[in-house]
Design a protein around this nucleic acid. Structure first.
Lengths: 66, 66
DNA sequence: CTTGAATAACAATTCAAT
DNA sequence: ATTGAATTGTTATTCAAG
């Protein structure tokens, strides 16, 4: 419904936390009161052109490319 | 065995083609005479810190982040 | 046009071997 | 330390629906 608001939240979340998977991102969103499934996260990530990168920690995380 | 040489080839290949999957990358390498499986490609991608991005074509492709 | 459930497709890791 | 086969985990897409 509020795709834009959700996508802004996604960007905010990936800046704030090391989010390893789309399921984890879904969890954060759900806890923020935004009901969402992995399928839609996948589509948001595509639209936002996010990528999964190797973090300094050695783990993968979602990030925006510059 | 020749990990470095292979990884250089990987970088070369992703610059030259829009490579969508690790299997596809494995195919290119195998055709270059470098025997390799998806498991190792995954490790190479991790070491090289490559990412899967949405290409201008609208498809996903592997890329180096600047 | 946007979404979720289910599934297919793909990628990361384990485990054994070298 | 590096790798492949098999497996597990994760993500993209399909398909139906609103």
């Amino acid at each position: 419904m509020k795709k834009y608001a959700r996508q802004r939240k996604v960007l905010e979340l990936i800046e704030s936390y090391e989010i390893e998977t789309q399921e984890e991102l879904a969890d954060y969103l759900n806890k923020s009161g935004i009901e969402i499934t992995q399928a839609t996260i996948s589509r948001d990530i595509k639209e936002l052109r996010l990528v999964k990168v190797l973090a300094k920690s050695g783990k993968y995380k979602y990030a925006a490319i510059e």
